[in-house]
């Protein structure tokens, strides 16, 4: 209430007052050049991932075109098929650039999908805990606290050791690792929001629990969720890469960036650096870009820092 009054009276940023919330958000976000660079980075990575089959020089999965004679070519050398391997080839003669594009695709898919499903699960559980309170809340939060007291990599290790390799399995493992963060975040916000008048008003109108929770409570809990979600996607990509590097994540048939790095690791000591380094740079670029965006979102969406 006080916030809206002060906003209409004086706008300290000196921006025109007729901006929609979304426009205001965009202009706030763009104030940081680093964050804009991060956003552009995320966009580039996402576009490469989506259009990988069309922009890759070769298809690294097509065994007919992969030639073992091409194996471990240095960057810039020409392959048997006449295509120049801009960043070299790997131990099986696949063009690294194409492998990286396809790998990026798998890494991003795994990260985004597990993040999204974990968000859904976490939101449902967290909202339930906050809205009903009492014993339900205690029970749910005990489980969340217990899980968060173990590091993510350990839980993922336990799950993958029992489940085995596979895209579906690593997504399951990442969901199990991540849901608790979302549940805790949404519960914290929802507990504050729940005591506000509009929820009381909605309850007085005899709206169903479901409607109050999803139509009234949830939209007001979104800002911190967006921040946690962004950071968690970066974490999921990083964790997936780590697990694949350890050889317990994705199967060899679906090489993500982590697996590409792992494949190149054995050649690195003999000076064939490119097989490991370039996928690593792409992975780093992706993670840092997402984190930069997340960092800026945290500042922009934090009501305490509202200028």
């Amino acid at each position: 209430m006080t916030a809206t009054i002060s906003e209409t009276l004086v706008d300290p940023t000196g921006k025109p007052a007729d901006l929609s919330p979304f426009q205001r958000f965009v202009s706030d976000f763009c104030e940081s050049k680093v964050a804009v660079a991060g956003a552009i980075g995320v966009l580039i990575v996402a576009l490469i991932a989506v259009f990988a089959p069309w922009i890759s020089p070769t298809n690294p999965y097509d065994l007919a075109t992969v030639d073992i004679m091409d194996s471990r070519l240095a960057p810039g050398k020409q392959m048997m098929s006449g295509v120049t391997a801009v960043v070299g080839t790997d131990g099986m003669g696949r063009d690294m650039l194409s492998s990286m594009f396809y790998g990026l695709r798998i890494s991003l898919t795994v990260g985004a999908m597990s993040g999204f499903i974990a968000l859904m699960v976490g939101v449902c559980v967290g909202l339930t805990a906050a809205y009903f309170g009492g014993r339900v809340d205690t029970l749910i939060m005990r489980v969340v606290d217990l899980q968060l007291s173990f590091p993510a990599i350990l839980i993922a290790l336990v799950l993958l050791a029992t489940l085995g390799k596979g895209v579906d399995k690593i997504i399951i493992a990442l969901i199990v690792v991540q849901w608790a963060y979302f549940a805790r975040t949404v519960r914290g916000t929802a507990l504050v929001e729940r005591r506000k008048e509009y929820i009381e008003a909605a309850a007085c109108l005899a709206l169903s629990h479901r409607r109050i929770v999803f139509k009234h409570l949830l939209p007001n809990c979104l800002p911190p969720l967006i921040v946690v979600g962004t950071v968690q996607i970066a974490n999921a990509i990083s964790l997936e890469a780590t697990l694949s590097f350890l050889g317990i994540g994705l199967p060899v048939t679906e090489p993500s960036l982590g697996l590409l790095i792992s494949n190149g690791f054995e050649y690195m000591l003999s000076g064939k650096y490119w097989i490991s380094i370039y996928p690593g740079i792409v992975l780093l670029f992706t993670i840092v870009s997402i984190n930069l965006v997340g960092d800026r979102l945290r500042d922009v969406l934090n009501p305490r820092l509202e200028r």
């Binding site: 780590t242 590097f245 690195m268 000591l269 490991s276 780093l284 993670i287």
Partner: peptide, 14 residues
């Protein structure tokens, strides 16, 4: 915080 530690390790070795 944000760099995957296995990658930093590889860079160290490199």
């Amino acid at each position: 915080f944000s760099l995957p530690s296995f990658w930093v390790g590889i860079m160290f070795i490199m």
